[in-house]
């Protein structure tokens, strides 16, 4: 990992960028769902694309692809890795 590590929330990633999940700031229900779909602390997540007009995000974590609304993505804090590498 590069020495200048910044933290940001998942909705701030640019398409194609990776981040490692640091913290899930979610209620029980959302937390459970995120974890079940593989969005766990320590896992690397990649933003694939955003839908237009403020729509949901398309992300990949492990072998799972999923979509989530920006509000939900806001609860996921990451360390920012350089784009293009996991």
């Amino acid at each position: 990992m590069s020495p200048v590590t910044t933290t940001l929330t998942l909705n701030r990633l640019d398409p194609g960028e990776y981040g490692t999940i640091l913290e899930l700031d979610a209620g029980d229900e959302l937390y459970q769902r995120l974890v079940a779909l593989g969005l766990r602390i320590g896992n690397s997540v990649r933003l694939l694309r955003r839908a237009r007009f403020g729509g949901p995000l398309h992300v990949r974590v492990g072998t799972t692809e999923l979509m989530l609304r920006r509000r939900e993505a806001h609860c996921i804090r990451l360390t920012h890795a350089s784009p293009g590498r996991p």
Partner: peptide, 11 residues
């Protein structure tokens, strides 16, 4: 809709 909106996008 009280389910969190996090849906899988299967291949």
């Amino acid at each position: 809709n009280n389910d969190p909106f996090v849906l899988e996008m299967p291949p």
